[in-house]
Design a binder for these strands. Sequence first.
DNA 1: TAGCCGTGGAC
DNA 2: TGTCCAAGGCT
Length: 345
Amino acid sequence: MTASMDMIGGELLAWYDRHARDLPWRALPGKPAPDPYRVWLSEVMLQQTTVAAVKPYFAKFTQRWPTIADLAAAPEEEIMAAWAGLGYYSRARNLVKCARVVGEAGAFPETEAGLRELPGLGVYTAAAVAAIAFGRRAVVVDANVERVVSRLFAIDEPLPGARKAIREKADAITPDARAGDFAQAMMDLGSGVCSSRNPVCSLCPLNAHCEARKTGEPERFPVKAQKKPKPNRTGTAFWIECAGHVWLETRQGNGMLAGMRALPDDGWTARSDGTGQPPVDADWQAAGAVRHTFTHAHLELSVKIGQVDAAPADREGQWWPLGELGEAGLPTLYAKAAQLALAGR
DNA sequence: TAGCCGTGGAC
DNA sequence: TGTCCAAGGCT
């Protein structure tokens, strides 16, 4: 290891001591580690999700379920509904499983390997919780670290192939002490200084070490493979109403929006258009359409409204009071569709 | 391993 | 308006 690499950890920690963000799930530098439950919950919520989006959900969850025992005891459908709008709903399904495993065990495992066994904790999250909640030295590599490290060492190889090289460099600059602070310092640096679009190298505590800065184009790193275009899909959702209630169904399986309450639809998926076929006979009225973009498809969802006298035959679901729709936990796509239907009745 | 899985903000 | 992106995990 070069002398320069030896200095990076200490210099970054010194910067973090002065510039750490004050976040609800975080202990400020030098303070005792926060409750592992809060660290874990925040890390899962923050997977592929911005700090701004997470904050209100973290506040809601910790107020409603202050301990992991509270969360473990909660009905799954309440947790899913509380997660509605945050996206990537498999996280919520795994959150429930994980809470029950940990609740049964009495506490979180304190090692990276033990944490890695829990549902919803991959390589990144296990390392982050081990470092932040338990002070273990762990190599914490997320998108921020990938960006910072690929710039520090001007790694030309495109992602995802460069992951191995990035991990080795991240390991080399991770200090033995204050691993949690170091990991969070890398996050803060990647978020506010070494940002994706307009890095502010003049404010970077590591700028003297940075190979990418020397090239004059730090934003060129990390190099990424080209992305595939998203296909356009069409589908139809059906607003089935009876006596002040709307018919909602819980989406099954492990696919898109699985486990979430939804309007019945015509079978659209990210890979294929819907049939347009309604689930029941009614005098259907068009209410318009909503556009929504998922990770790998654009969807134009038409909304049709029908009044019925009885529950749809051969379908699992429930009548939901129109006045309580806000508590149904509809994911954003269906919240938008519901808004359209309510306006169009 | 590469595709699947949400959402909203920035530009 | 469209594209990119954000503290990834699972299969």
